[in-house]
Design a binder for these strands. Structure first.
Lengths: 126, 126
DNA sequence: CTTTGTACCATTACACCACACGGTACATAT
DNA sequence: ATATGTACCGTGTGGTGTAATGGTACAAAG
């Protein structure tokens, strides 16, 4: 598995990592059950901070592309191929765009939309 | 019409203005057809910048609480009483909250939601 | 004693936005 | 002349987010 991280690229490093691992899964370069490099090992190889790699792994596990097994390491998820085709962020953007567009059509100012959004995100839901 | 602006209050000045004018309408202190002070006049009386008052008037007109008539001045809208009870921002927050809550239940990170939101708001829709 | 994922503490740099301020200008009317 | 709403240019302050860095620590297993 050849992973190339471009520091000059505007795409965040953790996002580049996620993209390349999903791509490797889709191209069959890594198959379900295969072990992945440990977080610290990969961080060392790519000259990245371990927290950056950990962030990528955490999101990949959320998407069921990989599966962490504690001290035993991290492995490619059984349904990795199917789940690598799903782009959760794209779905979020589409749904959110519908909502925002409706607001704008109702005469709501962009500034007001931002304020409302900030209020919701910072609200302590208890 | 007695308008009191509190600079110490955390509520934005233009929002205080909007609130007090809507309140005056609901309490019947000003009635449909009544003239309002000009933007410059009110700004001078309250020691506010004219742009701050203009912002409040612009939003009040969008909500059909007041009606600007160019050089003739600004007047209370015929449907001002009914429209003063409507809180557009509250409606926006409720709708937006539903959308965000759905995202969170799907495992989407708050960070990802913010990124998607920023992408939409900054997108040039042409 | 080392390695695994994970969870805290933290700081730095960068970027964006709301709010309020100031100045200038315009057409339209009295 | 004076006043109306409105539009454009701008500045500054304060708040807050992401991204990425670093350090420390834990339980579990080899």
């Amino acid at each position: 598995m050849e992973i190339i991280i471009d520091i000059e690229n505007e795409t965040p490093l953790f996002a580049q990592l996620i993209g390349q691992i999903k791509e490797a899964v889709l191209k069959g370069k890594i198959k379900p059950g295969d072990p992945l490099p440990s977080i610290r090992q990969l961080a060392n190889d790519l000259n990245l901070n371990s927290k950056t790699v950990a962030k990528a792994y955490r999101l990949l596990e959320r998407d069921s592309v990989i599966k962490a097994r504690g001290y035993r390491g991290t492995f490619v998820h059984p349904d990795a191929v199917a789940n690598s085709t799903v782009d959760l962020n794209k779905w979020v953007e589409e749904r959110l765009n519908e909502t925002v567009t409706a607001f704008r059509k109702s005469g709501v100012t962009d500034s007001e939309i931002r304020i409302a959004f900030a209020n919701i995100m910072n609200k302590k839901n208890f």
